[in-house]
Amino acid sequence: MTWTIYLSGEIHTDWRDQIKQGAEENGLPVAFVSPVTDHPASDAAGDMLGKPENGFWRDHQSSKVNAIRTKSLIENCDIAVIRFGDQYKQWNAAFDAGYCAAMGRPYITLHNEDIVHPLKEVDAAAMAWAQTPEQVVEVLQYVTTKT
């Protein structure tokens, strides 16, 4: 079986690449999917439908277009990894975690200890909390290969 792993959240560091590299080095039976990680492209996702003058409606329109991909990928993944970074508040990642929790989709949170308190409900519904991409790889290795 090839496990589909959805990589959600922070887009400003290379955590996704680190997990992919670790999975490849360990020969894990996984395939990775993710939302659009090009920030300007994501912000403009709905512009082909007409660019509203009001920023709220542009964001609303683009979020719905982005949700086509996000919703489909979360619904079809085996495990989600949801990264909360240091630089920005990832409200979209919190939404993805809530969606996973509501669907009963297992997810792993990935974040530093200094935001444990604000993420307590998100972490409580997670199957694991990792602090490094290497820990995520170790969890994936255990889940996908141990007999």
Rank of each mutant, 00 (worst) to 15 (best):
G22K: 01
A67F: 06
K64S: 05
I68V: 06
C77E: 00
P29Y: 03
Q18D: 10
F84R: 00
L49N: 05
Q61C: 08
A45Y: 00
T70F: 05
D86T: 13
S63T: 09
W57M: 06
P35M: 04
Q61W: 05
D47E: 12
A67K: 04
Q21R: 15
A44F: 06
T37K: 10
I74G: 00
W15A: 01
N76S: 10
K20D: 08
L28D: 01
A44L: 10
S34R: 11
A41L: 03
A44D: 14
C77A: 04
L73A: 12
S34H: 15
W57T: 04
G22L: 04
W57K: 03
G50H: 11
A45Q: 02
R58E: 11
S72D: 15
P35Q: 11
H39C: 12
T70Y: 04
D43S: 14
I79N: 00
G27L: 05
W57I: 02
L73R: 07
D78K: 05
R58L: 13
R16Y: 09
T37Q: 10
G22N: 06
E25Y: 03
S72H: 15
V36T: 13
E53C: 08
P29S: 07
G46I: 06
L49S: 06
K64T: 07
E25M: 10
W57D: 08
K64G: 05
R58Q: 15
N76K: 09
K71A: 12
D17E: 15
K51N: 10
R58V: 14
G46W: 03
V65P: 00
S42E: 12
A31M: 08
D38Y: 09
V36A: 10
H39Q: 14
I68G: 00
K51W: 07
S62V: 03
G85M: 07
K20C: 12
Q21D: 15
T70L: 10
I19R: 02
I79S: 01
P40A: 04
Q61Y: 05
A80L: 01
V33P: 06
E75L: 10
P52K: 03
A31Q: 14
R69P: 04
S72C: 12
R69G: 11
E25D: 15
E75A: 15
G27Q: 09
F32E: 03
I19N: 02
A41C: 01
G46V: 04
D38I: 14
A45I: 00
E24M: 11
N26A: 09
I74W: 02
